Computed example of a mutant assay.
Amino acid sequence: MTRRRRRTPWAAIAIAVAALALGIATTGLMAAAGAFHRTAPAAWRAQNARCAAPAAKGSAVDVTVWDMGRMMRGPNRPVPDDRRPGRYGMGMMRLVARPTTVPAGKVTVRVVNEGTLTHEVIVMPLAAGRAAGERAPGADGRVSETGSLGEASRTCGSGAGDGIAPGAAAWTTVTLRPGRYELLCNVPGHYAAGMYTELDVTR
């Protein structure tokens, strides 16, 4: 009997720790798979959509930017100031482009912000042998924009602005030669949190 009494608290603790770890792992997998993202877009757009991108000039690349918003911060933490450097969560932001391959020429990058934070999309060339996500952020949480070919960061408009507000769209039209490009969000901390993808341009 004595042995059982001594083991019971340790067994209970072990079960509680295992359950907590399983819950965290499940939440992470669901976030990575876009489970939270898929439950919200239709309702979010119906409630919050402020504008829509125009018809594309040339090929169209539709980009969705998204973050886990309040789930990333916890219930009692304030909305972060997007101007401060640093990571938001553990890669719990997404930037998804469709299609990921287009022919050379005029390309309109149309962005919809389905997150709760301000985002943007910058079009950057990718050097040979480099992959999307390999740029090194500076002390301000941003990567260098040297060589940028275009930017969609104006709420309900084309070109550069102050960021795409939640529920809104932005767009930019660029002329791209055959090669590899990176689409990224350069709001401080967002690139390091996973907001980038590759775009391939063919002949």
Rank of each mutant, 00 (worst) to 15 (best):
T2C: 03
R3P: 04
A12F: 14
A16S: 15
A19W: 13
G23V: 07
M30C: 13
A33D: 15
A35L: 14
F36A: 13
H37L: 14
R38D: 15
P41I: 14
W44S: 10
N48A: 14
A52F: 04
K57I: 06
V61S: 10
V63Y: 09
V65L: 07
W66T: 13
D67S: 05
M71G: 05
R73K: 05
G74R: 03
R77G: 05
R77N: 10
P80H: 02
R84S: 01
R84A: 03
R84C: 00
Y88T: 01
Y88L: 03
G91H: 12
R98Y: 11
P99L: 10
T100C: 08
T108I: 07
V111N: 09
T116K: 06
E120T: 04
V121M: 08
I122T: 07
M124A: 05
G129F: 01
R135Q: 04
P137R: 00
P137H: 00
D140H: 01
S144H: 06
A152T: 07
S153I: 06
S158Y: 00
G159R: 06
A160E: 12
I164F: 08
A165H: 06
G167D: 11
A168I: 08
A168W: 05
A168E: 07
A169S: 14
T173C: 10
T175Q: 11
T175R: 11
P178S: 06
P178Q: 05
G179N: 02
L183P: 01
L183Y: 02
N186M: 01
G194T: 03
M195T: 05
D200R: 13
D200E: 11
